[in-house]
Nucleic acid binder design. Structure first.
Length: 350
DNA sequence: ACCGTGACGGTTGAG
DNA sequence: TTCTCAACCGTCACG
C-alpha cells in the first residue's frame, strides 16, 4: 500500500511498524545525544521508544551511521554463471567427481572464496538441475548475456554490482568536502568527515552541490546502493554511506514534502506539514516554524559541522562528568537546543 | 529511573 | 507475476 498509517507508541509518538524512523528523527537522536542529552530524555522528547534510541545510538557508535540497515532483499546468489561454468568443466573433466570435490576445487582454483563457495548441496543441485544435461552445454552460456558481466564481482561478501555510475563505490562515495572516499566495500574510517557524516546525512552536500541531488534523483535508488555496504560491513566495519535511498524511501513512506532537497532535512521530522500526521505529534512540534536550517546552507553547515565534528566523542562527553543531574539538561543545553532546533525539551520528571 | 536486550509483529526486496 | 524467505524495522516488556 502506498499510504502509510502510523501507529502510536506508548510515548505518543507515531511510527510505522516495520519501517525505519525517518532519517531526520534518527539524526535528531544522534544530535541530541551529542549534546549530552540522555537517551531517556531523547526518547521522551522525540517520542521514540528508548529501545529504539538505544539501538540507533549503539549503531551510530558502532558504525558511524545513523542510517538503518538494508531491509529486504536476498543474499547474493553464489551460483553465478561463472561458478556453474566451472562446475560444469569439473564435471566434464571428471564425471565421477563428487560435489565436495568440486567445492574444494572451486576454492582451490579461486573461482570462489570461502564466503561465496556454494554448499555441497548447492553443487549437487547445480549438477542435477543445470549440468545434468551436458549434451546442451550452452544451456547456461546462452542465458548468460543477462549476466554478461564477465564475472560478477563476487569477491566480496555481498558483491552486489552497481549497474550505473551512481554506485556507492563510485560517484556517491565522495563526501561533501570532495574528499574521495575509497570505493568498494571497504570499511570507512570512523572519522569525520566521511561519507556518512551527519553533515552528509543532513544533505548538506546537497546544499552545496545541487548536482548531488540531481544525481540522486537521476538514478534508481536501488537498495544495494547503500545496503550492500551495510550488510557487508556492519559486523565489523562502518561501511555506510551517506544519505540516499533510505532517506528518500523513508521520506516517501513517511509522507513528507517531496522536494528532494528538503526531504533530506527540514521536512522530515521538522516540518509540520506531515500530511498524515506521521511523526507530527512529536516531530512537528519541536520546530519553530521560522527556523530554516536547511535554507541557510552555510549556517546550517556551520552549526552542524561544528557540532558534528565532536560527534565521535559524544558518548563520552555525554557520560563523563556530570551524569544525571536532577534535570538532565543544563541550561546551556536547553538554550542550544532551543536556538538550534526550536526544541522544547521536557525535564526528565515525566 | 535508566538502559540493554530479546521477543514480537511488521515491511521489504532479491531471487 | 506471484511467492518465499531472510534481512531489517520499532515497540514493548523484562531484568
Amino acid at each position: 500500500m502506498e499510504q502509510t498509517y502510523g501507529e502510536v507508541n506508548q510515548l505518543g509518538g507515531v511510527f510505522v511498524n516495520g519501517r525505519p524512523l525517518p532519517n531526520a528523527i534518527r539524526l535528531r537522536i544522534v544530535e541530541l545525544a551529542q549534546l549530552g542529552i540522555r537517551p531517556c530524555d531523547i526518547s521522551r522528547q522525540l517520542r521514540v521508544s528508548h529501545g529504539c534510541v538505544s539501538k540507533i545510538l549503539a549503531r551510530y557508535n558502532e558504525t558511524g551511521s545513523i542510517l538503518p540497515g538494508a531491509i529486504g532483499g536476498s543474499k547474493p546468489r553464489v551460483t553465478t554463471p561463472n561458478v556453474v561454468k566451472s562446475i560444469r568443466e569439473y564435471k566434464q573433466g571428471d564425471p565421477g567427481i563428487f560435489a565436495w570435490e568440486i567445492r574444494d576445487r572451486l576454492l582451490a582454483d579461486g573461482v570462489c572464496d570461502k564466503y561465496n563457495v556454494p554448499s555441497v548441496s548447492s553443487i549437487s543441485r547445480i549438477l542435477r538441475n543445470k549440468i545434468g544435461n551436458l549434451s546442451q552445454p550452452n544451456q547456461y552460456e546462452s542465458g548468460k548475456q543477462a549476466a554478461s558481466q564477465p564475472s560478477l564481482s563476487y569477491n566480496h561478501l555481498y558483491p552486489y554490482t552497481y549497474p550505473n555510475a551512481m554506485s556507492p563505490s563510485g560517484t556517491k562515495m565522495s563526501n561533501s568536502a570532495g574528499v574521495p572516499v575509497t570505493g568498494g566495500h571497504v570499511s570507512i574510517p570512523r572519522g569525520w568527515p566521511s561519507a556518512h557524516t551527519v553533515s552528509n546525512i543532513l544533505g548538506i552536500r546537497a546544499f552545496m552541490d545541487p548536482t548531488a541531488i540531481a544525481g540522486t534523483e537521476g538514478y534508481t535508488p536501488k537498495m544495494e546502493d547503500w545496503s550492500s555496504v551495510n550488510r557487508a560491513a556492519f559486523p565489523s566495519t562502518h561501511g555506510v554511506n551517506g544519505i540516499d535511498k533510505s532517506s528518500i524511501e523513508t521520506d516517501i513512506k513517511y509522507p513528507q514534502p517531496s522536494s528532494t532537497l528538503s526531504s533530506y532535512v527540514a521536512p522530515c521530522a521538522y516540518s509540520p506539514s506531515n500530511q498524515y500526521g506521521v511523526y507530527s505529534g512529536a516531530a512537528g512540534s519541536y520546530v519553530s516554524p521560522g527556523h530554516h536550517w536547511q535554507a541557510q546552507g552555510s549556517s546550517a553547515m556551520t552549526i552542524h559541522s561544528g557540532e558534528i565534528h565532536s560527534a565521535m566523542s559524544f558518548k563520552h562527553t555525554a557520560r563523563d562528568g556530570d551524569r544525571k543531574p536532577p534535570s538532565p539538561l543544563s541550561k546551556q543545553q536547553h538554550e542550544v537546543l532551543s536556538s538550534i532546533h526550536g526544541l522544547s525539551l521536557p525535564t526528565s520528571s515525566s
